[in-house]
Design a binder for these strands. Structure first.
Length: 631
RNA sequence: GGGGACGUAGCUCAGUUGGUUAGAGCGCUGCCCUGUCACGGCAGAGGUCGCGGGUUCGAGCCCCGUCGUCCCCGCCA
């Protein structure tokens, strides 16, 4: 503490001194060279007449020795050095003697015997240690002192990885005839979708720019303009509540191309992901990523972004005979779903009952219930049912377990079976889709709860950690309870399947219309989302109408775009992937904040620069704004 | 908007049933130490227990409110 007020350290000017090597590079083959190293003091070990300084930069750490007998002056300077001081050391590289090497450091075979030390800058005692790799510091402190947090090797690695991934993607797309084209950040509000960040116009009082939620319309216009293939590492802005994997401003790999099939786009994305992962020394298997429809995803996983690191759900309807259904009074139109959480270990009877009770409580008044398979087995009448269910679940697990990461061990696996309670769907006011989703959620909750046991979420830094898939044929429309209308599930420029247009379903059966829209999913996280776009003005107008938008309204909102569509728009489509999420998963991080240099808190505050802030009355007056604080 | 967890020394945390002067490890400061690499030894400094109010003879601990951080739901075309 008192060091903070200490001003006695005499600092040195750098003069004409030049750095000869970075701190991760010297090896025994460099022995004998005279070198000048510059960096931060990682640690100081003071043995009196012998002092060791570990000097650190982004590339690594090198041990510098100060021997009073070799250079009393340098030794005296080293006595004053403290952690995070910036130093320049000159000396000779020496191979360390027998028993003195450090096998844990790449530079551990050598050390530099210093003849001179310059203290280029001092440092206050950092609020948290930079040198400790396993530091577990409150994020509030880390974000306030982000410049120190970023100095930690762990984060430096994350940002090196991010750079490499970004570069690999840029190179791959460039090599495949994509042009990187920038689009404006000051643009116009598009009323659908997330809330916009708005920027008031000084020149046009009462008018606002919006920061783009994505470059969607611009990239489509670039296709109309004939650029053929476009991409951009694009900043995007959405004013919605945050999560561990959601920041208000974030980066997308945005791309669009003309005359594509869905598969054209899939192959491009698979190509650049393979290249990106290769830079992290992860070789993704050859061949296309697996693919399933939205409908299949919901039925097998209860979610549109399945985590393929876990076994799927199984519809056990076939195992429950009609007579049994009758006697259990379970509605025949509703699914009975089971799934397995592998390798949770044997649960005692008490533990099993407690778990089931907890789950039942979480179901609340939803009309779902659990079958206790273990108990069913003990009742003679139901033993065959228990057997059939267990067999079905075990078969699914066996299929899944082609994955060498786990082994099947029946008694250690947790089987969960969810049934609708006796009664009709109308009684409980749900549809089958809702059941799939609820059980899918339970599957994820329990998998998280037992993550330490099954270890399926653990990173081994091999390709087996990363389970990609494409989800296709999303619904075109989504019923909005809030607005009592059909909204575009993806965005209103998405093309429906052509036969859904010709069949008239756009008006007659909106819920059944499938879009040429697709997501790419990695380990249960949505990495990206795209679609084949509408390229005909008449179809676009019809879609707007089907969304309840009058021609006048469509003109007012998207007139410029509808006009552009009338000048020879080629068929086109594309996708955008969250770069931050790709890097996060690749880095083994669980929060975007670990891979964004200057992230915001859950309340969208930047704790380092302290943003947002109020602005002066003069600024407000220039913008013709008045603050009306809500009470 | 809703639910949950957390907030005590610079950092990570402990703090019993409400009871005297609030502790530990790391870090920091001073001294000693020529082979350490999480160096070691001795001594020392460091606290508005997030903030405000209440209950009580007495509050880090109980109650109410508030602020902040994290996680989840809603929301995120």
């Amino acid at each position: 503490m008192t060091s903070d007020s200490k001003t006695s350290v005499q600092l040195d000017f750098i003069g004409s001194l030049e750095r000869t090597h970075k701190l991760g590079v010297l090896r025994s083959t460099d022995a004998g060279q005279t070198v000048t190293l510059m960096g931060w003091v990682n640690r100081r070990r003071d043995h009196g007449n012998l002092i060791f300084l570990d000097v650190r930069d982004r590339t690594g750490i090198t041990q510098v020795v100060f021997d009073k007998e070799v250079s009393p002056a340098a030794h005296a300077r080293a006595e004053a050095a403290r952690p995070e001081y910036v130093v320049a050391a000159t000396g000779r590289v020496r191979v360390r003697g027998e028993g003195l090497t450090n096998p844990n450091m790449p530079t551990g075979d050598i050390e530099v015997v210093a003849t001179e030390l310059l203290l280029l800058n001092e440092s206050k005692t950092p609020p948290f240690p930079i040198a400790d790799a396993d530091t577990n510091v409150n994020e509030e402190v880390r974000l306030k002192y982000r410049y120190l947090d970023l100095r930690r090797p762990e984060l430096q690695r994350n940002f090196e990885l991010r750079h490499k991934v970004t570069r690999a993607i840029r190179d791959y797309l460039s090599d495949n005839e994509f042009l990187e084209i920038e689009t404006p950040l000051l643009t116009r509000s598009t009323p659908e979708g997330a809330r916009d960040y708005l920027v008031p116009s000084r020149v046009h009082p009462g008018h606002f720019y919006a920061l783009p939620q994505s470059p969607q319309i611009f990239k489509q216009i670039l296709m109309i303009a004939g650029f053929d293939r476009y991409f951009q590492v694009a900043r995007c802005f959405r004013d919605e509540d945050l999560r561990a994997d959601r920041q208000p401003d974030f980066t997308q790999i945005d791309l669009e191309l003309t005359f594509p099939k869905q598969e054209t786009i899939f192959r491009v994305v698979e190509g650049f992901l393979r290249a990106a992962f290769a830079t992290a020394n992860i070789t993704l298997p050859e061949g296309n990523f697996i693919q399933m429809t939205y409908d299949q995803a919901i039925r097998k996983y209860g979610i549109d972004k399945p985590d393929m690191r876990l076994p799927a759900m199984v519809d056990l309807s076939a195992e429950v005979t009609p007579e049994l259904r009758e006697s259990l009074k379970i509605d025949p139109t509703l699914p009975i779903l089971g799934f397995t959480i592998p390798s949770v270990g044997e649960l005692s009877g008490t533990a099993r009952k407690a778990l089931l009770a907890e789950v039942r409580t979480s179901f609340g008044e939803t009309g779902l219930d659990l079958l206790d398979v273990a108990r069913l087995r003990t009742a003679q009448a139901f033993a065959p049912l228990a057997e059939a269910i267990t067999t079905a679940l075990t078969n699914e697990l066996a299929a899944f377990t082609n994955n060498p990461q786990i082994t099947t061990n029946n008694s250690a696996d947790l089987h969960i079976v969810v049934t609708p309670k006796p009664g009709t769907p109308s009684m409980w006011n749900y549809d089958p889709q809702w059941i799939y989703k609820r059980v899918g959620q339970l599957r994820l909750d329990l998998a998280k709860k037992y993550a330490d046991k099954h270890k399926l979420f653990e990173q081994t830094k091999t390709a087996a950690d990363f389970k990609f898939l494409w989800v296709t044929d999303f619904p075109m429309y989504e019923w909005s309870e809030e607005h009592k209308r059909w909204d575009a599930a993806h965005h209103p420029f998405t093309s429906p399947h052509e036969d859904d247009i010709t069949s008239g379903r756009l008006t007659s059966d909106k819920g059944a219309v499938r879009a040429l829209a697709y997501d790419i999913v990695l380990n249960g996280t949505e990495l990206g989302s795209g679609s084949i776009r509408i390229h005909r003005q008449d179809v676009q107008a019809e879609i707007f109408r089907s969304l309840g938008m009058s021609d006048e309204e469509a003109q007012a909102r998207f007139g410029f775009f509808l006009n552009a569509l009338e000048y020879g728009t080629p068929p086109h489509g594309g996708i955008a992937l969250g770069l931050d999420r790709i890097v996060m998963i690749l880095a083994g991080a669980t929060s975007l904040r670990e891979v964004i240099a200057f992230p915001k808190t859950a309340k969208a505050i930047d704790l380092m620069v302290d943003a947002p802030t109020p602005v002066s009355d003069i600024q407000l007056r220039d913008l013709s704004l008045r603050i009306n604080t809500r009470s």
